[in-house]
Write a protein that binds this DNA or RNA. Structure first.
Lengths: 331, 331
DNA sequence: AAAAATCCTGAAAACGATTGCATAAATTAA
DNA sequence: TTAATTTATGCAATCGTTTTCAGGATTTTT
């Protein structure tokens, strides 16, 4: 498979590169016969415009960046599937970076993507990201940014999120309807938008059913397995709950593990509910029910907004916030 | 963050772009004072060479492509982590594509990456890929290819694989030492290199311990959950085995699910062994032990070979085949 | 003091594509 | 027949870099 350029075609057909270029893009200035001649030859030699030359010409890379905490996590890998499907179908490349829940890495990712001249990025913030100064810095220079899942409070950005409030509310209410009264809630750091919304959903459900919120049953922790374990232990030392509702993919699994290890100290009826997209949760025992986010759709929607913005002439002024429904996967 | 070009610097300092370019790359031809002047100014305005211009210039994109069956699979997402770490640290971008176990998609991925002018690719073949005609087509035009995990039989390529034979041998032997005598083996289609090697390991272990190979206990199937279920059912209808040894990440999980559903029909001692990198296998019940591949290392090694080849002057003539050790994760 | 060597810098071409402008050739109008 | 118009094509600049070549200025050698 040899790489053919416009110049090669021009030389072969004894035309100028400009004529060939125009013929291929069906310009009105070119004779019909010439067009056919060129088109046939181009097809024969399998000509493809060099995307790098085009990028240089119009100062667009036709590539977008994605920054996620980690891809070895079903929620994010499903979201990436969505992003890639949308992007590839529209002729864009996708460059994936992982922040590994570190602000430093997130900054490096941003710099890297910016220097590589991606046209825009999709980002789900790291667990350590408190503000978005480092992103604002870039978003000025017509570098489009769309947030998904873990979004900042700030106005002035496109965002695609799950209905974290309702998801947490539904899960909590489900547990209550199962007769649970002491529902522990272990969740991610309060810096994350998702944390607050889910906590609200949890509290609202308790409130609706006349159960008092017990702050001792609520723990925040990071993504270190030890922290999760400690949180479960603390809660169990305080009082054995009859249900756990834990959030955030990775964290929920760490908690589940600690819970599984101490399951024998709990009543057989104790239930465990997560907020994850783990695609094998139904194979777990003791059972693990989860709130599932429409990860794939979140990916396509976020990518669509970004690409629409990149391809629109005028600057976007009103920012969309799309909220997608979650559903419960009861095991 | 404004984008600055060489020309901007040249204009600001009243020099020519060539002088600026040379100064920045510390050419011996440039006066020390000029160099310092340029370097300081470049730093001040945060100059970064435009990678797209460089790509055009030296006909390299400094991007590599990766084609895997799917990323929502721990083995591949870990391998990708390795690939990205190696590639980013050497200034390369990584473009990930998924074949979704389809030959058609694999071809599309190839075409896409080739047209996008990646400098080379890392590929793990789809479950439907019987030959590599479609890859040969490209590999001629100095488009480097390195295979990993699922590699073709053909000579003349760099390959990085796990020691599938030994991994399967060790798992089977472990089961035998646990007293199992009727070990079922459900595995991927024989078109895949990994299938053959693992099957050999399984047979060799039986042989070593004087257990006759029963072909009725061996089933090949694709990646559709129903096929896996059917395979488990067929085997159980034939004769209840006292152990299952199933291969290939996704497939092994499908089998496990079928097995879990019919567990009550089996003796309590029945064991299940998979060949997967699932990072939550220890949370499963009934227990799921697995042969684990060094996925991350496989990624870094494969990427290293590819990048070394891309950066070496002369054409590589002897091709490496790297075989990495697996280990057992007993639950 | 003239010739040779050294040092520093800039102009221009190249990579592959697009596009404004110029122009030759063919056609039509006067 | 000449002028005006249309048609079809090519030239050259552009995007941001690197690099070859050329040459002016300064220093060293004879």
């Amino acid at each position: 498979m040899e790489v053919v350029t416009l110049k090669d075609i021009a030389k072969a057909l004894n035309l100028s590169t400009s004529t060939v270029s125009r013929a291929l893009r069906d310009s009105y200035e070119i004779n019909e016969k010439t067009k056919i001649l060129v088109a046939e030859y181009a097809k024969k030699v399998n000509y493809r415009p060099n995307p790098i030359a085009l990028s240089l010409k119009d100062n667009k890379s036709r590539a977008i960046g994605v920054i996620v905490p980690e891809i070895a996590n079903n929620f994010f890998s499903q979201a990436i599937n969505g992003i890639e499907d949308e992007a590839y179908s529209r002729g864009y490349h996708v460059v994936i970076c992982q922040s590994h829940e570190s602000l430093e890495r997130e900054k490096e990712n941003l710099r890297h993507l910016f220097e590589r001249r991606v046209d825009g990025i999709l980002i789900s913030l790291s667990g350590k990201t408190m503000d978005i100064e480092h992103i604002l810095e870039y978003s000025e220079s017509n570098f489009a940014v769309v947030f998904f899942d873990r979004v900042p409070d700030s106005e002035g950005f496109h965002k695609v999120v799950a209905d974290n409030f309702l998801g947490a509310f539904a899960a909590t209410e489900y547990l209550i309807k199962q007769g649970k009264k002491r529902i522990a809630h272990i969740t991610s750091p309060l810096t994350l938008s998702i944390t607050k919304e889910r906590l609200e959903g949890y509290k609202k459900a308790l409130e609706k059913h006349g159960i008092e919120v017990d702050n001792q049953l609520i723990k925040h922790c990071g993504f270190d397995p030890e922290e999760a374990k400690a949180a479960v232990n603390e809660i169990m030392n305080y009082q054995n709950p009859d249900a756990f509702f834990t959030c955030s993919d990775r964290l929920a699994l760490h908690c589940y593990e600690a819970y599984q290890n101490r399951k024998n100290e709990l009543s057989a009826e104790t239930e465990f509910f997560g907020f994850t997209n783990l695609n094998v949760s139904h194979l777990f025992s003791p059972k693990l029910s989860t709130v599932v986010q429409p990860a794939y759709e979140m990916g396509t929607r976020a990518a669509k907004i970004l690409l629409d913005q990149l391809e629109s002439k005028r600057k976007v002024k009103d920012f969309e916030k799309i909220v997608l429904e979650t559903y419960l996967k009861i095991s």
